[in-house]
C-alpha cells in the first residue's frame, strides 16, 4: 500500500520535474529541476532494493555531475533566457509520442518470457552492497578496471580541455567585444 503511494507520488514528481527541465527557457531552472529529479530517481532504486545503486546515484549524479554543471555554468551567461528558433514542434512531439507508444508495446509483449533466465544470482544471506561487491569483483572485474581507465582518461581530458588558456579570462574578452560594438 505504502509502496503504491510512494511509487505514484515519486513518478508524478519526476515526470513533472523532467518536463520542466526539457521545456524551460532558463538554464538555472532546468538545472535545478534536473537535480531534483535525479535525487528522486534514487527513490526508485531504494524501493527496488538496490540500496547501493541508490547511494551511488545520489553521490555521482546529484553530487558530482550537478556540481560539474554548476561549475560549467559559471563560464556561460545563464541570466538571459535562451532564445531558440523552434521549427515544426508538432513533428517532434509526434515522433516522441510514437516512440513512447512503441516502447510500451515492446515492454508489454509476452514474447520470449520463458527463455529469460537468471545469470547472476545474488548471495542468499548477503545485504545488497555485499552482494554487489561480490559480483563486481569476481564476474565483472575486467569491465570494472576498464571503467576505471576510462574515468582516468576522461579526467585528464577534462583538465586539458577546460584548463588550457585558463589565464586569459572569458569575461575580459566579452568586455572587449562590447567595447568593439560600441565603437562601431
Amino acid at each position: 500500500m505504502f509502496e503504491l503511494i510512494a511509487f505514484y507520488t515519486i513518478s508524478v514528481l519526476t515526470i513533472g520535474l523532467f518536463l520542466v527541465t526539457v521545456l524551460s527557457k532558463n538554464v538555472l531552472y532546468a538545472m535545478t529541476a534536473l537535480a531534483a529529479g535525479m535525487s528522486l530517481i534514487s527513490g526508485y532504486f531504494f524501493m527496488l532494493g538496490a540500496d547501493f545503486l541508490g547511494v551511488v546515484q545520489l553521490i555521482v549524479y546529484v553530487g558530482a555531475v550537478m556540481a560539474l554543471y554548476a561549475f560549467g555554468m559559471m563560464f556561460f551567461d545563464v541570466t538571459r533566457d535562451i532564445k531558440e528558433k523552434n521549427t515544426n514542434g508538432a513533428v517532434v512531439f509526434i515522433i516522441a509520442g510514437s516512440v513512447a507508444v512503441m516502447l510500451t508495446m515492446i515492454f508489454s509483449m509476452p514474447l520470449g518470457i520463458n527463455s529469460i533466465m537468471t545469470l547472476v544470482q545474488p548471495e542468499v544471506n548477503a545485504t545488497n552492497p555485499e552482494a554487489v561487491g561480490l559480483v563486481l569483483f569476481t564476474k565483472y572485474l575486467v569491465p570494472f578496471e576498464v571503467a576505471a581507465v576510462m574515468l582516468l582518461v576522461a579526467m585528464i581530458g577534462g583538465i586539458i580541455l577546460a584548463g588550457k588558456k585558463m589565464d586569459d579570462s572569458l569575461t575580459s574578452t566579452e568586455d572587449d567585444k562590447i567595447i568593439d560594438t560600441e565603437g562601431l
Binding site: V60, A154, G158
Partner: peptide, 10 residues
C-alpha cells in the same frame, strides 16, 4: 555518464 559530462563540459 560521468566521463561524458567531464569531457563534454570541457
Amino acid at each position: 555518464a560521468a566521463s561524458e559530462v567531464a569531457i563534454g563540459l570541457g
